[in-house]
Amino acid sequence: MSAFPRAADLGLIGCHVCKLVISADTPARVDVADELACPRCGSVLHRRKPYSYMRTWALMIAAFLLYIPANVLPIMRTASLNDIDDNTIISGVVELWVKGSPDLAIIVFTASIVVPVLKFLSLGTLLLSSQRGSGWARPQRAKLYRLVEFIGYWSMLDVFVVALLTALVRFGLLSLVEPLPGVIFFGLTVVLTMLASMSFDPRLIWDGRDSDD
């Protein structure tokens, strides 16, 4: 354990919503469900995010399951007079690369492939190591969590690209863009990974083997 004073040991609770520090022996008020509520904002107080492991695992697995059709199914159809072309995420990246915008191809590749995969791997690592009460590389793991939180929503990039192209390319028979189911799965994947990283409690990284939950 670290030598720093921890709130759980001092009998203090910080409100997750308004960050007020409350000492546990002078609890503010007890709400209907028999739980402690913050005296300032009324939110339910927790030492750790409730059911953190369970929720994070569940949301992450759900996100991963949706990520498979998001990649396999096409996300966008471009139709013109003489051909119909269905694009998956990866073929969209390849097209950008080949047609002369390798820099943008890298950005899209990062947002749509690297970030989600990195998120799955990172959250998986954080969950497994924290559940085993591992003391391995704690500061680095804490940093990894902050990175995952920070980059999460940039994955929405491809969804917005498809939406904009669909709205823009409306030239009747000459040229049309339509969204395909892959983009829906991808949007849901991003939302679920965001919810997953929000339900993970980084304090668990620093808790020992004897932690609650």
């Binding site: 720093f4 921890r6 709130a7 203090l12 910080g14 000492s23 620093w206």
Partner: peptide, 19 residues
């Protein structure tokens, strides 16, 4: 209910250390 004294404290959201 020591709100004044607890506003003098701060808990790290990421590791629970008290400052």
């Amino acid at each position: 209910m020591g709100t004044t004294s607890s506003e003098a404290l701060l808990i790290c959201e990421h590791c629970d250390t008290v400052y």
